[in-house]
């Protein structure tokens, strides 16, 4: 199963993420976003940040999750390459994300992510591959 794929969008960019459950879907969405930011091979997951979120429903939880990572990346000047969701339901999430401080000599930032948007956001059951969850997210970049 593919973890994610890129969606063509005129102004911005989008990803379609897959996962056999909510935890995997959220991990793969974060991974898809992070790998569009920079080459993750070069990001050493040596430091971690804890994330705990609440939202009204699972779609809003997904946007909050991705924007939390964007916020942490911008405010701590860090890049993240590993995502571990430990607890998740439709309205709550607990996770640990791993990465390191941005190093201008080793890291190259490919894309600046302003935010994950709510545009046409939907978490649904995928038909291909069958039986997994999928989500499409459009980002403002």
């Amino acid at each position: 199963m593919k973890r994610f794929e890129l969606i063509e969008h005129t102004a911005d960019m989008g990803i379609k993420a897959y996962g056999k459950d909510m935890g995997e879907l959220f991990t793969n969405a974060a991974y898809g976003m992070a790998s569009s930011m920079t080459d993750l091979e070069k990001v050493n997951p040596k430091e971690s940040q804890d994330i705990s979120l609440e939202a009204e429903n699972r779609e809003e939880l997904l946007v909050s999750w991705l924007n939390e990572i964007i916020y942490l990346s911008a405010s701590k000047t860090m890049l993240f390459s590993k995502f571990e969701v430990s607890e998740i339901d439709d309205r709550h999430l607990k996770a640990k994300i791993f990465g390191e401080g941005f190093d201008i000599d080793r890291h190259k930032i490919e894309t600046e992510f302003k935010a994950a948007t709510y545009h046409r956001l939907k978490i649904s059951n995928s038909t291909l591959p069958e039986g997994v969850l999928q989500a499409e997210i459009i980002f403002d970049i």
């Binding site: 969008h9 005129t10 102004a11 911005d12 948007t117 709510y118 545009h119 046409r120 459009i138 403002d140």
Partner: peptide, 9 residues
């Protein structure tokens, strides 16, 4: 005009 998110750009 082009495709945005929500509002068109």
């Amino acid at each position: 005009i082009h495709w945005g998110y929500g509002f068109p750009i």
